[in-house]
Amino acid sequence: MRSVSKARVWLGLPVLLAGVGLVLSFPSLAPNPYLLSVGIVVLNYAVLSTAWNFMGGFTGYISLGHGALAGLGAYGTALLITKAGMPSFAALFAATAIVALLAIPLGFAALRVRGASFVIVSIALVLILLLVFQSWASLTGGSSGLVVPRPFPQLLRPEHHRVFYYLFAGLLALALLCWWLIDRSRFGLGLKAVREDEDKAESLGTPTFAYKLVIFTVSAAFTALGGGLYALWFGDLDPVFQFSILSGAYMVLMALLGGVRNLFGPVLGALIVGIGLEYFKVEYGNTPLHLVASGLLLAVVVMFMPDGVIPSVSNVFGRFFQPTRASIREVSAEQLREEARR
């Protein structure tokens, strides 16, 4: 549905290739396993915020409950391995399918409301699941946590990180490809109309509720995949961290920071937030300073770059490369007289 100008392709392609090259070579460039694990955390954030952006970016519905979907993916994967004895990656895909199925009734209820009401419903989902997973200790391990068997027990830690780094990179590429395809489809056009004005979109024949439900399910599936893969990599789950409003808020922050209407917006946001969080943890330990910094960052983004970093930078470049984008058509007095004569 959307045409890409040649100038954008010529400018964007080298940047894209350089980015892909950097991502693929990072495990070889990282001087120690710790930095490689930071790379995995950043990729995990990028997967989760891109997954969130299927819902938030296309429809404008701000969900703070996506942390719960990631938690369900993580616990689902872990429980299918430990309780049902499934192989690790079969458990990951089965858990994803279960979360996607669960997302249908969840979305059916939550998507009937809009704006602030939807945000509150999404927060309620996280809190309810936190209580359930904390108190159902016989199944989930409760506050003691749940240990997830490693899928590659023969690998040493650096190799384990390296394998998961590429798995996360592959998952991110898949999520980005899906987002890109939807963005250019008729389905995507309908979703963007929902984002602009849901009632108007409905009056033009867009099946708004069905579309929201489908994209919510897609978003939930990718979020669950991200959460499940994290469980396989990290190997230890705690309900307090898995079902945290903060993790959902970080997904929103990362997407807003980079730009929700841009394919790579959440990836850039994840890079900035992920590195920032690790820096605060290393420099200041277990202090709440990283939360203060996150809050300040969100305030700065909302005030100075409400559309995110990528659109803001694109606009600056656009002023140099696309001077004909002015809103008012410039005509000379002679042209006006000619038009009046006609």
């Binding site: 549905m1 959307r2 056009l189 309908g190 963007k192 109309a193 984002r195 602009e196 004005d197 108007k200 979109a201 033009l204 867009t206 209407r261």
Partner: peptide, 12 residues
């Protein structure tokens, strides 16, 4: 739809 192109508006 203000944030969409004229083309997208018409196609909608």
């Amino acid at each position: 739809f203000r944030e969409m192109t004229v083309a997208e508006n018409v196609l909608l």
